[in-house]
Amino acid sequence: MSKNALVTGGSRGIGRAVAERLAADGMTVVLTYANDAASARETVGRITAAGGTAHALRADFGRHGDAAALWTAYDALGLDGVDVIVNNAGIGMPVPLGKVTEEEFDRVFAVNVRAPFFVVQEALGRLRDGGRVINVSSGAARLAMPEILAYGATKGALDTLTLNLAKALGGRGITVNSVAPGIVDTDVNADWLRGNPEALAHAASLSALGRVGEPGDIADVVAFLASDAARWVTGRVVDATGGSGL
């Protein structure tokens, strides 16, 4: 029986790479997008062209009832349960301490922490025993970065969620892990990273491996955690920063 995977925020960047990799591994992939329907269609098209199966659903995270609405739409696709959940959807907030508003604070926690929590809660009756939950965290959870401290706090909370979910779901053979990327060359970072040799060189220098991460670097780690080879790994944060901050 083929496996089903849900990848939130799967239309671009890391999410797209994860969706394509899991589809290449034989899974039927359901990816979500917030606003960029064209990119979502493109990702589905890329997967289909490569011989895989994928569906795209719009999911507006950050509002009460968002997770329930997502799973209602998922069920309408006629899929029998889910085997892998990748909580990748998230928003950044490059705002320093003195300028963070209460509304911004609430928004970033609603999308980055509350949504993954309830995506898993709403999935409990759908998630098969032996399944996988993978939360996309960030190196910002372990490094002091005051310029994005509220964002970093959400990822620290997500890692704590990972730890507790691993204990809560372990009796069903379900593993739960976080993957923590560093700087990755995606559209989110394009404005300051691409076309700026100095910024690129600085970003690369932060990694022990001397380069900026690529979406595929993260997707490969997620694919490992989603596989049977990672059956004995749970409750962990897997650093995928290329050795940043060593």
Rank of each mutant, 00 (worst) to 15 (best):
S2D: 13
K3T: 14
A5P: 02
L6E: 12
L6R: 06
L6D: 13
L6Q: 10
V7N: 02
V7D: 08
T8Q: 07
S11E: 06
G13V: 00
I14V: 12
A19N: 08
A19W: 02
L22K: 00
A24K: 08
M27L: 15
V29C: 00
A34L: 03
D36I: 04
A40G: 03
T43I: 03
H55V: 00
R58A: 07
R58K: 03
A59D: 07
F61L: 03
F61Q: 08
F61M: 02
H64P: 15
T72M: 08
A73E: 10
Y74P: 14
L77S: 14
V84A: 11
A89H: 09
A89C: 10
G98S: 05
V100G: 02
E102T: 14
E103R: 01
D106V: 10
D106H: 10
A115M: 00
P116H: 08
Q121G: 04
Q121L: 07
E122R: 10
G125K: 00
R126V: 04
L127W: 08
L127K: 06
G131N: 02
V133D: 10
V133H: 10
V136S: 11
S137E: 08
G139W: 07
M145Y: 11
A150T: 14
G152N: 05
K155F: 10
T160D: 13
T162K: 02
A166I: 07
A166M: 05
K167F: 15
A168S: 14
A168L: 09
L169H: 07
D187C: 01
V188A: 15
N189R: 06
A190L: 04
D191A: 12
A199L: 01
A203W: 12
G210N: 02
G216Y: 12
D217N: 03
V222Q: 09
L225M: 06
S227Y: 09
A229G: 11
G235M: 14
G242N: 04
S244V: 14
L246F: 13
L246V: 15
